[in-house]
Design a protein around this nucleic acid. Structure first.
Lengths: 220, 220
DNA sequence: GACGCTTTAGAGTAATCACTCTAATAATGG
DNA sequence: CCATTATTAGAGTGATTACTCTAAAGCGTC
């Protein structure tokens, strides 16, 4: 693997674990046992590393959100989408931790991200339209748009919600289970719009993602 | 006003405007035209300032979320709650920008915050129970719990959503209007649970908070 | 094996950070 | 008016930051 790629991988891992704020370029170099000069030979500054990671993240998410045109959507599709997005968010979780800072520090990243968000929202809308066409949910366009936006907000906030409100240290195994709770939570958004024909089936599926009692009951 | 209070006020203003990360204790002192030594006479470190601001924030939110016991809830109550919370979140918006960092840096704040969150969630649940008792919404306990959690997530993420996805510079006047969009968005969460008796009334009310076309249509 | 290009090491730098120390000044109370 | 205490100024500190510079090492090719 090239040094350049090793820098990206190490940066991503360290940013995720400790937060971008707490990881300096010197830390990254030391972790890789290379010199700071070497790091700066491959990237002109820290922003450039972040920018590249953010591009990978966006590509990952957009790939997950592709909408099949030739066939109708199924309930399983929806789960696949959610799991894909949640695992993408997890793998790049440093990005949503203080995105305001990342965007404020890099105009190029900001415009890229805002375009990316529009694309995402359009695809989420398209997915819900697909579910409506498939007869799985029933709602008007206003409700659908609001649902799409609320879904986006809940999904993208879910990880930081977990990390701030629940388990203290960011142990991965524990959180991976809780991560699935995001699926449950989004299903709860859609549930009232389910058609009678699909309600029982979907609700049964949702239960598979029900948060484990040990932390759910500690909430309510 | 005491120097101590002036430090708190200036810190809050600067943290909100520039982000806690970008505001050093030296900045705060310089802004107040006092010496760093003076600042550290009143607060033992930066964390202590943040901690105190976080306590004010929590008290503000809990005060807003008080549930009247002697009377039934009305639709107007709900709007009052939402506006109160949103304006509280706005006035302390630095807190939700990188809360993970704030909590990781201060164990005391972390335990306070987690207890605070539980209290908030319980009150949101109580409010929805009140609306159910008043016959405004109809749902079972599972749906109600999920709705409460989703409401909390959407409300607390709304401001950072606005600041990252929409208008670039954080101009207050523009954002104050958009801030109200959060009310609309939460109403959208509840809308499918409205009883027939109240649906038309509430939906009409919701329209008053509909986001202005100039940025809504840019989204979809 | 000499040349040129890419990659690397590592010392160094100016700026900034949170915070400390000492001493001067103001306020207070007897 | 004096003694004590509370408040303030301001210089300074060691650590850390993002990043630069120079020179050396690899390495492919003729």
């Amino acid at each position: 693997m090239t040094t350049r790629q090793r820098i990206l991988d190490a940066s991503l891992a360290l940013f995720n674990e400790q937060g971008e704020r707490n990881v300096s370029t010197n830390h990254i170099a030391a972790h890789l046992e290379i010199s700071p000069g070497n790091l700066y030979y491959h990237f002109k500054n820290k922003q450039a590393i972040i920018f590249e990671l953010a591009m990978s993240y966006q590509q990952r998410v957009l790939t997950v959100l592709e909408v099949p045109e030739e066939r109708a959507l199924t309930v399983t599709d929806k789960i696949t989408y959610l799991q894909g997005i949640l695992s993408g968010l997890w793998d790049y979780r440093f990005i949503h931790r203080d995105m305001e800072h990342l965007l404020a520090a890099d105009d190029q990243l900001k415009s890229h991200y805002q375009a990316f968000f529009r694309q995402c929202l359009q695809r989420v809308v398209a997915i819900y339209r697909g579910l409506r066409t498939a007869g799985i949910i029933a709602l008007n366009d206003d409700d659908l748009n609001s649902l799409a936006l609320n879904t986006w907000i809940v999904v993208t906030s879910w990880i930081s919600f977990l990390r701030t409100h629940l388990l203290a240290q960011g142990g991965q195994p524990e959180n991976m289970l809780q991560l699935q709770g995001g699926v449950y939570q989004v299903f709860a958004l859609e549930r009232p719009f389910l058609t009678e024909a699909f309600r029982d089936e979907v609700v049964a599926l949702q239960q598979a993602f029900a948060p484990r009692p040990q932390w759910l009951h500690s909430l309510f």
